[in-house]
Design a protein around this nucleic acid. Structure first.
Length: 330
DNA sequence: AAGATGTGCAACCGCACGTGG
DNA sequence: CCCACGTGCGGTTGCACATCT
């Protein structure tokens, strides 16, 4: 039995996408918007399965996604969220709106896992490998339990955020100023230039040009030497710091909104039963990104979250979020 | 210089879930 | 309620490129 494949295997092209296919797909989505993926292959004439189209769009062509060059803040967030949520890459990605789950997953598997392993072995061997605990925890918990656990995680995360948001203004202020400064320059610091994938890069650059008019935001710069090809043109909707002269409360409010898509902690509280990433999924915000790009939604949240993560890292009990806590809830 | 091995990442696969008829 | 369909998600694979021997 089982479900039939999403598309006929015969005549369906697989493998890397060509620039021409990208153009076709993007042009179609430009006209019709993302969604109804089933119809995409037939309407565009692409010899691709609908899933492949969707994947290509969400992971690669979608505007507003950033590729490569993970910042330290992002690394910390991923590490922490992975600890908190397990391998729920989509959920993790919802906290990093410019990153795709696939990208985060790859980055975790190729970089962070090793990095953590190194750190862990170098640090202490007695407490066991937290990464392995992590995996085992997320793997052995059945789905139902996992969902309850996730809710608890969210609740605890809210608590942590609440605390993070209610720290003394002076401290917060200095945190903002310092971390914003540091944020602005470190995005390329620790990561090497990605390898260039030759012919496609230039072709994809053409796609970028083709699509230039699509984005309402001007494309600021194009690092043509970066391997992140076409998508970089989308991604270069650089996050201009919007903090400027705003009051702290406003900043906090905006930070929270831009970070979690809620207007207040109360609304977050009221939405308890529904995991927020559903409403925050990159796909869900695609069109919003087009119409009202979240300028500044990167630097501000990171500074706050950085604080949150760092606080927790050094004193978990303070925020009631010890790494193993969520497992004990049930 | 050439083959072997390692690494990173795009894309595929299959399962689960939500929804509408 | 059941079923088919569309979509989302996480795990895995395959390939291109980099590095090593």
């Amino acid at each position: 039995m089982g479900r039939p494949p999403c598309c006929d295997k015969e005549g369906v092209k697989k493998g890397p996408w060509t620039p021409e296919e990208d153009i076709i797909l993007v042009t179609y989505i430009q006209e019709h918007g993302p969604g109804n993926w089933r119809a995409v292959p037939t309407k565009t004439g692409l010899s691709r399965c609908s899933k492949s189209c969707r994947l290509r769009w969400t992971n690669y062509l979608r505007p507003g996604i950033k590729r490569g060059n993970f910042t330290e803040q992002e690394e910390k967030m991923i590490i922490h969220l992975q600890d908190l949520l397990g391998n729920r890459w989509a959920a993790i990605a919802s906290y990093l709106p410019q990153r795709t789950d696939n990208d985060i997953k790859n980055y975790w598997n190729t970089h962070l896992k090793k990095k953590l392993k190194k750190l862990q072995t170098g640090k202490n061997n007695s407490e066991g490998n937290f990464e392995e605990e992590n995996f085992s925890a997320s793997q052995r918990i059945p789905r139902g339990q996992w969902e309850r656990r996730l809710q608890t995680d969210i609740h605890m995360a809210k608590k942590a955020l609440n605390e993070a948001l209610s720290v003394s203004p002076q401290k917060l202020s200095s945190d903002f100023s310092t971390s914003n400064l540091s944020n602005s320059n470190n995005s390329i610091s620790s990561t090497k230039e990605l390898p260039q994938s030759s012919c496609y890069a230039s072709s994809a650059d053409n796609i970028a040009k083709l699509l230039k008019g699509w984005m309402k935001n001007p494309i600021k710069s194009s690092r043509s030497t970066n391997s992140s090809v076409a998508q970089n043109s989308f991604n270069n909707i650089d996050c201009v710091s919007s903090s400027g002269t705003k009051g702290e409360s406003e900043i906090l409010s905006e930070t929270f909104e831009s970070l979690f898509g809620f207007e207040s902690l109360e609304s977050l509280e009221s939405s308890n039963s529904e995991f927020s990433h559903q409403s925050l999924s990159p796909d869900a915000t695609v069109l919003q990104d087009e119409s009202k790009p979240e300028v500044g939604s990167e630097t501000m949240p990171f500074s706050l979250l950085e604080k949150w993560l760092l606080d927790e890292a050094c004193c978990p009990e303070k925020v009631g979020l010890g790494c193993g806590d969520h497992a004990q809830v049930f």
